[in-house]
């Protein structure tokens, strides 16, 4: 897949006080993908989104949206983008219907009540359409922000911490909405603190730390490359020490001698010394086990390791 819809080239952002929020950011977002941007607080996620959406002026560099320069051709670039901000910002006294219709007009689209109805229904907001925003719960307000961002039928949707402060049920509902949008061909870029969210939804993961893109990788490949697995074997009888034939870095014996712990990733299998080889060696050494379980490191572990490594 090589059909970029957003190209970020050499982006720098230094704020007035001298704080450098982004440093030489190069990033390409492919059409139709869900891209998750991970990073600790203050890493530059929101600044990056804000520059692409026109909310913050870049100090250096260029952003191209579907072939249009985000500054020179701002109309064409921005009409393709929908933005759901991190903060629950809205006009408290407006009704749901009016505020979503307002957003459509603001983005230069003619009124289309049928589309607004479709968006509100897809977000379970239809019954609340005459309610004032101030009367809605936090989760519902978040949905309204998504509805506003979708009102003008964008091809790219930015979700800045979309499920922050949202309960589990609502979060899963939102994930379904996002997947539905992706199925309709909408490119989605989300920033999140919930690694589980990225793990669940993203096609590719980008990690940003201290204003620099540290890594961009297909999620599956990232998990394979950096995610380690652990196989724990519970032995029938304890071992005093590992037999010399089994001695290897990846294998260790617990203090009580009852458990063998094998830590591995994709490389051992490629080198012909994976789990099947280990099990054969154990049989040859006369070591039997009564139970086993495996554990795979989550994206969260990978993320924490990466950020720690670069700090």
């Amino acid at each position: 897949m090589n059909d970029p819809i957003i190209t970020i080239d050499g982006l720098n952002k230094t704020y007035e006080g001298g704080f450098q929020a982004l440093t030489r950011v190069d990033l390409t977002i492919q059409r139709g993908e869900i891209f998750a941007l991970l990073g600790p607080n203050g890493a530059g996620k929101t600044t990056l989104i804000s520059v692409v959406c026109g909310l913050v002026n870049p100090s250096e560099g260029h952003v191209t949206v579907d072939g249009f320069d985000s500054v020179r051709d701002y109309r064409q670039a921005r009409e393709r983008i929908g933005l759901v901000p991190q903060e629950l910002t809205n006009e408290a006294f407006e009704t749901v219907w009016n505020t979503v219709s307002f957003s459509r007009g603001l983005f230069g689209k003619s009124p289309n009540p049928a589309h607004i109805e479709k968006v509100l229904k897809s977000l379970s907001l239809w019954d609340k359409r005459h309610n004032r925003l101030m009367t809605l719960s936090g989760g519902m307000k978040r949905r309204v922000l998504i509805a506003k961002a979708l009102s003008h039928e964008p091809r790219i949707l930015f979700l800045d911490e979309p499920t922050a402060g949202v309960d589990v049920e609502l979060r899963r509902d939102m994930w379904n909405v996002v997947r539905g949008l992706r199925d309709d061909g909408v490119t989605i870029i989300l920033t999140t603190h919930y690694i589980e969210e990225a793990e669940e939804m993203a096609d590719r993961i980008g990690v940003i730390n201290r204003g620099e893109i540290v890594l961009v990788e297909e999620k599956a490949a990232l998990m394979k490359k950096l995610g380690s697995k652990q196989l724990t074997l519970q032995l029938h009888s304890p071992l005093a020490e590992l037999p010399p034939s089994l001695a290897q870095d990846e294998l260790s014996l617990t203090a009580d001698g009852f458990e063998l712990v094998y830590t591995y990733d994709g490389r051992q299998e490629e080198e012909g010394r994976g789990i099947s080889t280990l099990l054969t060696q154990l049989e040859q050494a006369g070591i039997s086990f009564k139970d086993l379980h495996t554990r795979q490191s989550s994206l969260e572990d990978i993320f924490v390791d990466l950020v720690k490594e670069r700090s």
Partner: peptide
């Protein structure tokens, strides 16, 4: 001022309008 105060100014500034 009110959109600035409430934060909803983001929508005006990110819209494809002059």
């Amino acid at each position: 001022f009110f959109p600035k105060f409430s934060g909803s100014i983001y929508e005006i500034l990110s819209a494809p309008i002059s």
